[in-house]
Nucleic acid binder design. Structure first.
Length: 499
DNA sequence: CGTTTTTGACCCGCGC
DNA sequence: GCGCGGGTCAAAAACG
């Protein structure tokens, strides 16, 4: 994990330098233009023509001056930010080397060459694939690397594998922890049979016994993730294809509840319910249930990752009421529970309904900025989530938000607040986000700084800043000037391209 | 004409 | 056992 992030951070800083260099050259060119007053011009045939020419050139001069000032200012700002990033990077690097040295002391198996090379001692695999045993994943790892994307249709799993090169000989030593394998939502046999997941039938077929696994699986099957977001459209655009199969008027809500089934694959068991909030009609409540048994588009993956991770967290963390309380407390940033580092979902709540444990991601409420000050408080945004919630309706900027929240959930699980077995996790979604969005790199670097060195404060706050800014800046900042990349990555609205 | 939506009927679990 | 409510089915209608 750390290695990849370090690489990304390095690349990012390099690119940022390059971009700023480009802009400086541009500025110099701009500055070296011969002043209009010195250029001289041929006499116009008529006085009026000459006058208009002069006034036009004067206007151009003013505009150019203004632009120069603007760009210079912006460049200064960007330089400062870059300096800050480099600073972060350096501290991250030093903390990482410290960590490596610590690891060295613990695992003498690791070869010195591995340790000397920052990029080699650990192999990180971010993959999106079917949930399977550690061994299976080990075997598939190489194949996945070749394919780039794993689309073998066995359902999606979100897994971060952190392998130490030194322990190649024994796969059992690999601390592989799996999050949310989406398959865990469903009985594999059931999926193989193509049975479309009727909850009532599951009840029938699963004879109650005392096996914890069975009961847990039963809970997993019923896990639901409810998303509240302001949305004008009848349904949220979550990247998946849905077919409506029913509609009901539910008690206590004048708005009908619509039932949708995923139609990407014929036997996909995933369903969702969509209903407008009775109190506030502008709020759309979408409840997801089940696991996709097919590859997903990037945007859909983001959503699936987010919801499944949330559901898994719910299932693993809410097995007992105290654990549920702890999880809920962790999610809400309530102190007094023994989870030292919290990652936040956007205002999640866990329902008390025992048969259908539901985690609710409320994207309609502003986040509490005070949370950022907690040990590793990484709130999705410090600027309120209404914009976030609204953006679920369109595709721009959504996937990264989802990836962010996925990361938080993953990290939250990794910290093992509720269940140590549901530990380190990341997704290909995150990998995509990292490569697609430079802001995520820096944010991640800052986060890792906290993660690796137990640091806190600035980095976490900055991640919140980046994310909030990235959410506002949007995809529109990617176009136009050579600064677009950096501006976007740092979350600035594009001042030049915006004209 | 194939796909999606609509909508009344039906099934099932749960509480009384 | 009965009624209620949530969820699903499937035929008909609508749509592209």
């Amino acid at each position: 994990m750390e290695v990849v992030m370090m690489r990304k951070a390095e690349e990012f800083i390099f690119e940022a330098h390059e971009e700023i260099g480009k802009d400086e050259k541009w500025l110099l060119q701009l500055g070296n233009r011969t002043p209009i007053a010195e250029r001289g011009f041929t006499r116009s045939p008529s006085l009026t023509e000459r006058e208009s020419s002069i006034s036009m050139q004067a206007q151009r001069l003013e505009a150019t001056k203004a632009e120069m000032g603007e760009v210079r200012e912006e460049n200064e700002r960007l330089k400062m930010l870059l300096a800050r990033i480099v600073e972060d990077y350096k501290s991250l690097q030093s903390q990482f080397s410290n960590l490596i040295q610590q690891e060295r002391g613990k695992t003498p198996v690791a070869s010195p060459t591995d340790i000397n090379d920052f990029h080699e001692p650990e192999l990180v695999s971010l993959r999106l694939g079917p949930s399977s045993s550690t061994h299976e994943r080990e075997e598939k790892l190489s194949a996945n690397k070749k394919r780039g994307e794993d689309h073998d249709g066995g359902g999606l799993s979100l897994a971060l594998e952190r392998k130490f090169e030194g322990s190649r000989n024994g796969t059992n030593e690999v601390p592989t922890l799996n999050l949310s394998s989406e398959n865990s939502f469903e009985d594999t046999k059931e999926q193989e049979a193509g049975e479309p997941w009727p909850p009532s039938k599951i009840h029938k077929n699963n004879v109650r016994n005392d096996d914890d696994e069975v009961s847990q699986q039963l809970q997993v099957k019923k896990a639901r993730v409810s998303v509240r977001a302001r949305c004008d459209t009848p349904t949220m655009n979550d990247g998946c294809q849905w077919r409506k199969y029913g509609q009901k008027i539910s008690k206590g809500n004048p708005c009908p509840r619509a039932y949708y089934r995923c139609t990407v694959a014929p036997a996909c068991p995933v369903r969702k319910q969509v209903q407008r909030c009775a109190e506030d009609m502008s709020i759309l409540i979408t409840t997801y249930e089940g696991t996709h048994n097919h590859p997903l588009a990037a945007s859909a993956t983001a959503m699936a990752s987010t919801t499944s991770a949330a559901a898994t967290m719910l299932v693993h963390g809410a097995a007992t009421s105290s654990a549920a309380a702890s999880a809920a407390a962790a999610l809400h940033g309530v102190s007094g529970y023994p989870s030292p580092r919290h990652f936040y979902l956007p205002n999640p709540t866990i329902s008390s309904n025992p048969s259908y444990p539901t985690i609710t991601l409320d994207l309609t409420q502003p986040f509490d900025s005070a949370r950022v000050s907690s040990p590793l408080g990484l709130a999705l945004s410090g600027k309120g989530s209404n914009a976030l919630g609204a953006s679920w309706g369109n595709n721009s900027g959504y996937s990264n938000q989802a990836a962010y929240s996925t990361l938080y959930q993953s990290s939250y699980l990794h910290r093992g607040a509720a269940n140590p077995s549901a530990g380190a996790a990341a997704t290909e979604t995150i990998a995509r986000a990292i490569t697609a969005d430079p802001s995520f790199r820096s944010a991640l670097a800052a986060a890792i700084t906290s993660y690796v060195g137990g640091g806190e404060g600035g980095a976490a706050v900055r991640l919140g800043e980046y994310m909030g800014a990235a959410g506002e800046g949007g995809a529109g900042a990617q176009n136009g000037s050579s600064l677009g990349f950096l501006r976007h990555s740092l979350g600035f609205p594009s001042s030049r391209s915006g004209k």
